[in-house]
Design a binder for these strands. Structure first.
Length: 576
RNA sequence: GCCCUCGUAGCUCAAUGGAUAGAGCAACCGGUUUCUACCCGGUUGGUUGGGGGUUCGAGUCCCUCCGAGGGCGCCA
């Protein structure tokens, strides 16, 4: 379909086979010296021990017919083949992309059921800046995966189980349930947690009650469970407020907290025992996964049951895999979790493999990411050194976005300023997070992310708004009676080719689960559009056919920007 | 001590083993300023942390050193 590189590659594969006698990847890539370049002749020639230019020449000769009407070829350098697409091919592909609800993006050839595990805040604890990246990246991946046709199950693995709940429930009782509910509903989760902690550390009687309460919770005491559920519900309600403000897909229906796996924990231990993997070490039940050592160079165990008989997060994570593979029948599990947990997950998944709980094609992928840093390049904190509350960060983003719009667009109504400002502020935060390689740390900088210049959300949103403005003037709502595209000007051609690249951008992003590839593409698209916009009058075009053609380019560009940013979870205003 | 990740222009970042390492910001020069100037074009700027190796070809793969961050048994 849309991606010309993909189309050409498919056409060249049999040619490569015919010429070289082996299966060789044509290696079709974007190029800065032609529309595309074919690099595969060099490697193929090497493989069969022939002269690369000679092989390239044979390929060009043999490909003339298959590529007729698609592209012309030229050999360059040691054996590169430069491709120039024919205008009619580009126009035809563009027309089919414009008719396609997916704008030319190929659906996945192998749809899977995919779990995306992201966000994962803790019950009765404030969401903070540490939850920003997992929530934003996970949400973007969900949207992209669904777009190409996968069945996605969102799972919010909230921390809703464990020893802290003894003290939290006792504190709830001390406060009185009504009072506690009030406190939690206004979002003062940290205050609640801190008070409980203080009492736990200073009051022996409270500490004793808390311990008994943990036992009651784990043994399934009805009243205790009811109180626990109150805490969970109050926190979930608060999380939902934050999610709505941030504009992510997560709802209460996606909650799959640690408590969900409670019933599976015993079974996990039993299964490990039966398969002979379980061992004792210092009083704990453990599994030794090969390849992991501790400080002393001795084998490092994965502890699945503590010396006191309790389970820990490793047990829960093991159960989680079992649940996702055996009950939900997922084949791909994405864990959108920070880089520091890499070793933990490696160990857990290694044990799952040893136990036979990850039969191919089922597999887990750690979609890890770096930290959010302040301008001092240290962990992002408030001026006073405190952890930044997520909700405060979101509110500030909205405030700053609205302030921008008020200053720049006084002609908009106050309501519209608020609405647009919200999109700009939230979009800026999301885009700043998504637009760099997730594995790296990034520096949080309000001024840069909110700038209308450069690789930012506001710049892309603005490019879209400019296009919508054209259609408002012409009184057409896009997509209606738009004619065939004529590629007269080089800028028109560049924009057309870029539009066809949406397909590759989305699919490439998903190959490695890196949203920044899509961001880079959208930025390039916006740049190509402004180049076109400067050089090619649309409404003032002399020829009506040219005018219609340019309107068609504008329309498709707006759609790709809208859809592309939408896949990143970023809203796009029609005017700003 | 061992393991993992990162190191690219003054700054922030790109670059599925391919040709001359690209953008944006900043700086400087210039343009248009009634299809949104919230713009566009150009110039300056690099030993891709250092050194070896593999390869026809390395920012990318391997080894080593330096630097930064993180992890390393009963928290999650």
């Amino acid at each position: 379909m849309a991606d010309p590189l993909h189309t050409v590659s498919a056409l060249l594969e049999p040619v490569f086979r015919a010429v070289t006698g082996v299966d060789a990847d044509p290696v079709v890539r974007a190029s800065d010296r032609a529309d595309a370049q074919v690099n595969g002749a060099l490697a193929a020639a090497k493989q069969v021990g022939r002269n690369p230019r000679e092989v390239a020449a044979e390929i060009v000769a043999a490909a003339a017919e298959p590529l007729r009407g698609v592209a012309t070829m030229e050999i360059a350098g040691p054996g590169f083949i430069n491709l120039t697409f024919s205008d009619s091919f580009v126009a035809g592909e563009l027309a089919s992309a414009a008719r396609d609800p997916h704008l030319g993006v190929r659906p996945t050839p192998a749809a899977e059921r995919i779990i995306v595990d992201y966000s994962a805040p803790n019950v009765a604890k404030e969401m903070h800046v540490g939850h920003l990246r997992t929530t934003i990246i996970g949400d973007a991946l969900v949207r992209m995966l669904e777009f190409v046709g996968h069945e996605v199950i969102r799972e919010n693995h909230i921390g809703d189980w464990g020893t802290p709940f003894g003290m939290l429930i006792e504190h709830l009782l001390d406060l009185g349930e009504t009072e506690a509910a009030n406190e939690l509903s206004v979002g003062d989760l940290d205050g609640f947690y801190r008070q409980a902690r203080v009492k736990f550390d200073s009051d022996d009687e409270f500490k004793q009650r808390s311990r008994l309460r943990v036992v009651a919770l784990q043994s399934g005491d009805g009243e205790t469970l009811r109180l626990w559920q109150e805490l969970v519900d109050a926190s979930a309600a608060y999380f939902n407020i934050v999610y709505r403000k941030l504009g992510v897909l997560l709802t209460s229906a996606d909650l799959a907290g640690e408590s969900s796996y409670h019933g599976l924990l015993d079974e996990v231990i039993q299964r490990l025992d039966r398969s002979g993997l379980l061992q004792q070490s210092d009083g704990a039940d453990v599994v030794f996964a090969p390849g992991f050592v501790n400080r002393e160079g001795e084998p490092l165990p994965l502890i699945v049951r503590k010396g006191n008989g309790g389970f820990n997060y490793a047990t829960s994570d093991l159960a989680c895999v079992v649940d996702r593979v055996e009950r939900l029948r997922a084949t791909l599990m994405l864990y959108v979790v920070g880089a520091p947990q890499a070793q933990h997950f490696e160990m857990v998944w290694k044990v799952c493999e040893m136990a036979g709980w990850l039969p191919p094609p089922a597999r887990c992928v750690h979609v890890q990411f770096g930290s959010v840093l302040g301008s001092d390049r240290k962990m992002f904190k408030t001026r006073s050194g405190d952890t930044v509350k997520l909700v405060e960060l979101i509110d500030e983003a909205v405030e700053r976005g609205i302030a921008q719009v008020r200053e720049r667009s006084p002609e908009l109504s106050p309501a519209e300023q608020d609405s647009v400002g919200r999109m700009i502020g939230i979009g800026a935060v999301k885009y700043a997070d998504l637009s760099t390689d997730r594995i790296k740390d990034y520096v949080f900088d309000w001024d840069r992310m909110l700038s209308f210049d450069g690789n930012t959300a506001p710049y892309l949103q603005y490019a879209h708004a400019r296009i919508r403005s054209i259609f408002r003037r012409v009184g057409v709502d896009g997509q209606t009676h738009l004619g065939e595209v004529i590629l007269g000007d080089p800028k028109e051609r560049a924009l057309a080719l870029r539009l066809l690249g949406f397909d590759q951008a989305v699919n490439e992003s998903l190959e490695r689960f890196v949203p920044h590839r899509l961001c880079t593409y959208l930025f390039d698209l916006a740049q190509d559009f402004t180049g076109f916009y400067e050089a090619c009058p649309v409404l003032r075009a002399e020829d009506e056919r040219v005018r219609q053609s340019r309107l068609a380019l504008c329309d498709l560009t707006a759609q790709v920007l809208d859809r592309g940013l939408g896949l990143l979870g970023i809203d796009v205003p029609d005017r700003m």
